[in-house]
């Protein structure tokens, strides 16, 4: 739920990084924290266990600039990825404006990715949110590992697309982030399919982290415009 504070001239939006355990959600936030200027971000708060697994959430507020005299402040949250923390995960999704799904590219983690994606759909649906109509991007992390699955396989499994919600969107729309690919395309059967933007990343080194953040933040602001 974005909140516009006219008195303070601020637009506040909430972005949640979702995905399976040990997939790199916290690493994304740590990289952002380390790279943005200290005067444009707050503290990185981690509610973690003693072994540094996220227990409740990580939180990082960042200012991404000014539009029409209003400061745009993004509140970045991660959820605990471990399966048994679902009650916490669901709480964090409340009033979310945009979602980043951080998938673990390793072949062995495919099932965990699918389970987490299903869990995301289910939790969103319980709040009455329609994930397919929200600002949503997918990040394939750990692309540097030798056992990383090809992006085509990950796309087919995690971002297979759905029928565009509005008939007006049923036209070929190029993917601005991948030349030669389309976000909205027509299958040979005649059915139109819409996918969400995806990014390849190596979050420990920072590759793809800001591309992902920029894309989801832009979608959130465009949803308000």
């Amino acid at each position: 739920m974005s909140m516009i504070n006219y008195a303070a001239r601020e637009i506040n939006c909430k972005i949640v990084y979702y995905g399976p355990g040990l997939g790199g959600k916290t690493t994304n936030l740590e990289h952002i924290y380390g790279k943005v200027k200290p005067d444009t971000r707050g503290k990185l708060i981690s509610l973690a266990t003693e072994t540094e697994r996220t227990l409740f959430f990580d939180f990082l507020p960042v200012d991404l600039g000014t539009i029409r005299g209003f400061n745009t402040r993004f509140h970045l949250y991660t959820v605990p990825g471990q399966v048994y923390y679902n009650a916490s995960r669901k709480l964090i999704l409340k009033n979310v404006d945009g979602i980043v799904f951080v998938a673990d590219s390793q072949v062995e983690r495919m099932e965990a990715n699918l389970e987490s994606m299903q869990n995301l759909y289910d939790n969103m649906a319980e709040y009455g949110y329609d994930l397919t109509r929200m600002p949503f991007v997918v990040q394939y992390n750990k692309r540097d590992l030798p056992n990383a699955a090809p992006t085509e396989e990950l796309q087919a499994a995690l971002n297979p697309g759905w029928e565009p919600a509005e008939p007006a969107k049923a036209r070929v729309t190029p993917d601005p982030y991948h030349a030669g690919q389309n976000l909205v395309d027509q299958h040979s059967s005649g059915v139109w399919i819409e996918r969400v933007p995806y990014f390849e990343a190596v979050a420990v080194g920072g590759d793809g982290v800001f591309d992902t953040l920029k894309a989801v933040s832009k979608l959130v602001l465009k949803a308000l415009a």
Partner: peptide, 17 residues
């Protein structure tokens, strides 16, 4: 486009005062 998942809301100076 509006986000169907959440109701947005805003404060003006008068509300805050």
């Amino acid at each position: 486009m509006t986000n169907p998942g959440a109701a947005n809301w805003s404060f003006d100076e008068e509300d805050l005062n």
